[in-house]
């Protein structure tokens, strides 16, 4: 049994975000991090590994420097890593991305007792689409927004969190789960594993390695294979600055409450 965890390296949008004059993101100037929800997926996989001794395989699609992230995940406890990387994969939207990742997972091999895990969504695109679309391409049952996981043999029972509660759902492996941050508290890299991580298995899957996969067709990957196109991107204008009130005592607060009353909003 193994758990395949799909992860993404993302620009840290909580830090300084630089935008190019043409409205695209200046990725080069930004720090990269492991997508936060994906860390919860890795932690969930490692907890099952702690219990059952199963193998944890991390898989990412991205440019070659994403190898560093995979090494960090191996230092956290992952056993193997795959980097899906090729220029022809660039420009993929969620449809084409899931097509490529699904092909790679198929190539790595999904056994009857395996589980695929993803984070709920990545903080750069915030789409939450790639997980369910991988599941569709691989014809796996999916549970998204997973807030609790129980595994018993080939039976997986999860809570799918909803806005107004949750659903408890049972599926058979192989299946795909997308994990939310409430699921767990990701562990740190193990000091002992940090040195070892660089000698652990890491395989690069390029277009050459995947071209015979049934899901890979030159017209379903990359920019060409993406059903969506960006018409335009832009930065929103700043709202005009308001009024800074003088002082911060009772008088100031009374003045503000008076303004609210005058505007009939209280």
């Amino acid at each position: 049994m193994k758990i395949l965890v799909c992860v993404k390296q993302v620009p840290d949008t909580s830090g300084v975000v630089a935008v190019n004059p043409d409205g695209t993101l200046d990725r080069a100037s930004m720090e990269t991090i492991i997508n936060p929800d994906d860390l919860n997926a890795v932690e969930a996989a490692l907890q099952i590994k702690d219990e059952t001794g199963c193998k944890v395989v991390v898989v990412t699609m991205g440019p070659p420097p994403a190898e560093g992230m995979l090494r960090e995940l191996e230092a956290m406890g992952a056993d193997e890593a795959y980097l899906i990387s090729d220029r022809v994969f660039g420009g993929s939207d969620t449809y084409a991305t899931s097509q490529i990742i699904a092909a790679a997972l198929h190539k790595i091999g999904i056994e009857d007792d395996d589980v695929v895990m993803c984070g709920r969504q990545a903080i750069d695109g915030d789409t939450a689409q790639v997980g369910p679309q991988i599941a569709e391409k691989l014809n796996l049952p999916q549970i998204t927004y997973v807030g609790d996981i129980h595994k018993e043999g080939n039976k997986i029972t999860c809570k799918r969190m909803l806005e107004d509660g949750y659903m408890t759902i049972e599926v058979q492996t192989p299946c795909l789960l997308t994990c939310i941050k409430e699921l767990n508290e990701p562990r740190y890299m193990s000091v002992g594993r940090i040195m070892d991580a660089y000698s652990m298995p890491l395989t690069v899957l390029d277009n050459e390695a995947l071209k015979d996969e049934p899901l890979i067709d030159p017209t379903t990957i990359g920019l060409k294979g993406s059903p969506t196109n960006i018409l335009t991107s832009f930065t929103p204008p700043q709202k005009g600055a308001g009024t800074m009130l003088e002082g911060n005592g009772a008088e100031t607060c009374q003045k503000l409450a008076g303004i609210m009353a005058d505007k009939h909003i209280i």
């Binding site: 969620t94 449809y95 915030d126 997980g131 369910p132 569709e136 999916q142 993406s226 059903p227």
Partner: peptide, 23 residues
């Protein structure tokens, strides 16, 4: 774009082979 809409939409778009814009 509720949790259910975002579970269902991508799955349908992938099956229908069409584009989906999130949220």
């Amino acid at each position: 774009a509720t949790n259910i809409g975002r579970d269902l939409g991508p799955r349908c778009a992938a099956r229908l082979h069409t584009g989906l814009c999130a949220d």
